[in-house]
Structure formats: C-alpha cells, structure tokens
C-alpha cells in the first residue's frame, strides 16, 4: 500500500501539534442503513493493536486492519483550509447507501 501526501497536506501535518499518545491515522467512517457507504478521514488518536504503519517523508500514518481492507492500494492525502484533510476515494455499496456529509 502506498500513501502519498501533497505539499499542503505535508506542511499542515508537520505543523500540527499532536497530543501525547496520539498519532495521525487514516480511519474509515461508515454509514449504514440500506447499503453501506464509506469515507476516509485523517484523525489523531491512540494506537490500535492491529495497526499498520506507513511512512511518507518522515511522517508515520497509521491505519487499522478494517481501514486497510477498504482503502485503495494507492491513496493520496490532500489538505485545504476549507475542507481540511481529504483522504482517498469514498465508495458506496449501493445506490441506497446513505452518503456521509
């Protein structure tokens, strides 16, 4: 799995003050109901037992087994002030799935 960070994402991550015992993580956020949709976010939280660690330009990004299963093999993280971090491509299992805002 390859994770790349755009210049703005890298700059933002390097200048973000992260609390002790917290780490940058790509996390899958799921919405259910009739179908399932998934969106990926960059969050800062604690270690999980089955985390994978992927490094890019000195930054370690974690993801749990579940997120790794659904994330594309090649994923880009971007950043802009309005939307924050933007991670990979979301997907929905059917047209009935509720999209996450």
């Amino acid at each position: 799995m390859v994770i790349t960070l755009t210049e703005p994402a890298l700059d933002k991550l390097k200048t973000t003050k992260i609390k002790e015992q917290q780490y940058p993580r790509i996390d899958a956020e799921v919405a259910g109901g009739c179908g399932m949709s998934m969106k990926f976010k960059l969050v800062f939280d604690e270690l999980r037992p089955n985390d994978s660690v992927i490094e890019y330009d000195g930054i370690q990004i974690r993801l749990d087994r579940f997120t790794k299963r659904y994330l594309d093999e090649e994923t880009q993280i971007d950043y802009n002030v309005e939307e924050g971090f933007l991670v990979g491509e979301s997907f929905a299992s059917s047209a009935c799935a509720i999209e996450i805002d």
């Binding site: 799921v30 399932m36 999980r48 037992p49 089955n50 985390d51 749990d64 579940f66």
Partner: peptide, 10 residues
Amino acid sequence: QKKLGVRTLD
C-alpha cells in the same frame, strides 16, 4: 471494540 482494532462490520 474499535479501540481494539475491530469494527462493527467485522
């Protein structure tokens, strides 16, 4: 369970 790396879908 999420904190232990296992999700509801699992």
